[in-house]
Design a binder for these strands. Structure first.
Length: 439
RNA sequence: GCGGCCAUAGCUCAGUUGGUUAGAGCACAAGAUUGUGAUUCUUGGGGUCGCGGGUUCGAAUCCCGUUGGCCGCCCCA
């Protein structure tokens, strides 16, 4: 039977599935536009080194990578961040700040499939470049929240966990840990929610057991869930860094509260977003029920553009994928089927009438109406049934009786009423009907 | 890369201790119906039972392998 299958982890979009996908993209695009973000796009295939430079050589095992016919090592893009950094870095001096950009694009990762994760997926990416202050985080977190809200999702359905890698580093530094040890602790913090105490195994292997007093403090810190607790934990520690950082926290949370988005955001220092390049605030969106994997994630990455060989530029961004998001919409019954209905269905008596109908069909189509008709002769009953199923508002009847009188019978399919219209008036009547004045 | 479960029509699934020509509902199509959307009825197309091998007189059924899927681990940029 199936001689050829699609490759594992790749998706095919039949019309109803594509309609759902387009619905998601339409609202994302509209929302990003409302926040003043400009859309861009970029190549699907990139030099392999672009990703190795950002993430390390190990990344290759998780990429669709190969050598092209010119001997170049290339990879299908697994994410947008390095690419958009290049775009911005190349023209940094010519771009008006702040740079607020977004894209909706497909990505590829060579990895094992799981619920909400495949080998190809779409992602909304939104980034702000050139703004070092929390105003950038404010905009992006607000946009993230509205990208959910636009679908009718509420604070009952999802929330955003907010954390801060800088704060962690300053805190661990104050506890007397050097940078390698701090990184290892952060890695443990990242895994602690899932693995519990085993999360510290790597640290122990590398540096020996973490002092139990320190560990107690770390565990207490990662459980902080409010600004008040955070302030209390930090107040006794000397130094300006932590105090200044707390001021950033107050400002960011204040901004979001002023936008009436406070109820969506939770302080949660247990989130540090695993790896590498984040340099400040980080945030992740989850479903409230805790049944799905992360819905979106982002944060500040001020040093990445410099790492790629350009002048440093502050940057904040997030990405959200279509797969887990689609699961959430489905769970909440928010996936309307929005296939585009026909406007006008043309009912045709026979071959002679078909020739007459073609002129009006083409004319209406040129005017932009969605017009359909049976490709082969069908009984009238079948045609009206097809008209109803097509979603058309109007049926135009080209029968022998009508044409003999020089008229077309126009049926309002919802109201089940009919009228006869002279043939040369058809397009006028149709236009009037659709411009609001029915009948 | 590792582990568990699974694979019969487009979809959801029956299929007895291994036994004649593999079934149902839904969906699709034709007709009843040569001028009006429902309902109903009749009929039809559609299957190498995921694929390959083995056991057997005989395999959708039992065994092995393989591919694919779901779920979890690792990872998650």
């Amino acid at each position: 039977m199936a001689q050829f299958q699609s490759l594992p982890g790749f998706r095919e979009f039949y019309p109803d599935a594509l309609a759902r996908r387009n619905h998601i993209f339409r609202l994302w695009r509209q929302t990003a536009g409302a926040y003043g973000f400009q859309e861009y796009d970029a190549p699907v295939l990139e030099p392999l080194d672009l990703y190795k430079t950002k993430s390390g050589d190990e990344i290759e095992s998780q990429l669709f990578s190969f050598t092209d016919k010119g001997g170049r090592e290339v990879a299908l893009r697994p994410e947008m961040t390095p690419t958009v950094c290049r775009l911005v870095g190349e023209k940094a001096n010519a771009l008006k700040r702040p740079i607020k950009w977004f894209s909706i694009a497909e990505f590829y990762r060579y990895e094992r499939m799981q619920k909400g994760r495949g080998r190809c997926f779409f992602q909304l990416n939104a980034d702000i470049f050139g703004e070092a202050g929390v105003e950038a985080e404010t905009e992006l977190i607000a946009l993230l929240i509205q990208c959910f809200g636009a679908f009718g999702l509420t604070a009952e359905d999802f929330y955003v966990r907010l954390s801060d890698r800088n704060l962690w580093f300053y805190y661990l530094e104050a506890l007397g840990l050097d940078e390698p040890r701090s990184r290892a602790v952060l890695s443990a913090v990242d895994r602690h929610e899932k693995m519990g105490d085993d999360a510290f195994k790597d640290y122990t292997d590398q540096f020996g057991a973490l002092d139990s007093g320190l560990k107690t403090k770390v565990l207490a810190f990662l459980q902080i869930k409010s600004l008040a607790t955070l302030e209390a934990a930090v107040s006794s520690i000397p130094g300006e860094k932590l105090g200044a950082r707390l001021a950033d926290w107050r400002k960011l949370l204040g901004n979001l509260t002023a936008m009436s988005l406070g109820k969506f955001v939770e302080v949660d220092l247990g989130v540090v977003r695993g790896l590498a390049y984040y340099t400040g605030f980080v945030f992740e969106a989850f479903d409230r029920k805790g049944e799905l994997r992360a819905l979106a994630g982002g944060g500040r990455y001020d040093s990445l553009i410099g790492k790629l060989g350009y002048n440093d530029m502050p940057a904040v961004g997030f990405g959200m994928g279509d797969m887990t998001f689609g699961l959430l919409l489905e769970q909440r019954g928010l996936t309307p089927t929005v296939t585009q209905p026909t406007d006008v269905y043309v009912v045709i008596g026979g071959e002679a009438e078909r020739q007459a109908a073609f002129a009006d069909i083409q004319s209406l189509r040129s005017d932009g109406y969605r017009v359909d008709y049976p490709l082969k002769d069908l009984a009238f009953g079948k045609q009206f049934k097809a008209a109803g199923e097509s979603g058309a508002k109007l049926a135009l009847v080209y029968g022998g009786e009508e044409l003999a009188k020089g008229v077309v019978r126009i049926r309002d399919l919802a109201a089940r009423t009919e009228m006869e219209v002279p043939r040369d008036q058809v397009s006028v009547v149709v236009r009037d009907f659709f411009s609001g004045g029915a009948e």
